[in-house]
Write a protein that binds this DNA or RNA. Sequence first.
DNA 1: TCTCCTTTTAAATAACTGTTTCAACCCAGC
DNA 2: GCTGGGTTGAAACAGTTATTTAAAAGGAGA
Lengths: 216, 216
Amino acid sequence: MSEESTKQKILDSAGPIFAKNGYQKATVRDISEAAGVNLASINYYFGDKEKLYTELLLLAREKMGGGLSFPNLNSENSPTELLERFVTVLLRKLGIGEEPDWQIQLLVNEFLQPSSSSREIVEGYFRPYFESLLEIIDQLAGTGLNREDRLRLGFSVIGQCLHYRLAGPMISMLAGEDEAQGAFGLEKISHHIARFSIAAICGFNKISEPNPSGRV
Amino acid sequence: MSEESTKQKILDSAGPIFAKNGYQKATVRDISEAAGVNLASINYYFGDKEKLYTELLLLAREKMGGGLSFPNLNSENSPTELLERFVTVLLRKLGIGEEPDWQIQLLVNEFLQPSSSSREIVEGYFRPYFESLLEIIDQLAGTGLNREDRLRLGFSVIGQCLHYRLAGPMISMLAGEDEAQGAFGLEKISHHIARFSIAAICGFNKISEPNPSGRV
DNA sequence: TCTCCTTTTAAATAACTGTTTCAACCCAGC
DNA sequence: GCTGGGTTGAAACAGTTATTTAAAAGGAGA
């Protein structure tokens, strides 16, 4: 049990530290200290710092996969409901409106500075979600959606969501700290993105070119 | 002249190295070696590593500010034209569709992991652009736009644009390398984002709540 | 109690970091 | 030619890093 305990203490402490500081700035000394274990324990149980990190990445991916489930496309819900639910779930997974889990931060860091395991994460974890989003978009947009537009529509939705995770500090600065608290809670953001995207997707085919005459 | 040369060689070499590796991973030894100057020259000319970095940030901001100018809001152009032009200019500044300059990478890194000088960059450089975007949105949306919605509309446009700079690798993986080349060139992206956003903004007030009945 | 194996501990190691030192160098101005 | 300022060079410094070592401690089985 002592072995389990020590190893687990390392994992528990290392996750937040890697997430907060990144791989480089996180030191094994900080981790061992935070875990209340001896410095050598990390190498004893995990081999080296990098193996500890990859084990945490694996745990992060497992954790992210479970928990919140995306809407069932075969349900009788309307496409607009499905999209709003999709956005809400994605934002919640991204940890918007709450202190983000270290698991999410770890995966997001992998996106931004892609390493060897990024491809695996995208293929195994993110692609299924993205495909289900595209199916919702199909239902919303109706017929006549070409392949490229379909992808770009998906990225327009994803991009809005990710923005609130990635550009959080910038948003606070531009909106002001006080306003950022009120106007950018989870519900308000997800409602906004859903409304914005539904209006866009439904109106998409009506505007083949931006209309030079002004209002549409 | 030799002084100019050495200092300039340091600046030229340090920019890409900081951009690529981030502040922590970039070492003064790497920089001095790449510049072909002595290790001590960096401290001789810049005081320390951090002062070199902030000087590079300043240069990056100057470079980004000049060159492409955002549309003049007082012109006789229609709001839709203005928005498309805004998006195009922003994407070009972000270096979409070309190999990104180190200057851009440096500023983007500041967004993602804000340091002490981030606030200055946002206030001095980004806020004016953001405000002009909000004015374009005002013209597109017409009356009755509350303060919070106005901000969120702005971030929906910005978020879509930034997504192509931040999530480039993920996009390539999800869309496939071949398709990413074709479907995500500068013109196609900017045209898409403009079209998507115009449809969304113009249709925004028509959907107070996502409509449960399906198509709108 | 003795033994064997796993685990923990503290210390040492070697590599790497930013920074400093100080002698050597260059090159105008006298 | 010499002098003195600014500049360069190689080495050393002090601090931190991940990693390794070897001894100590613990704990179960005989």
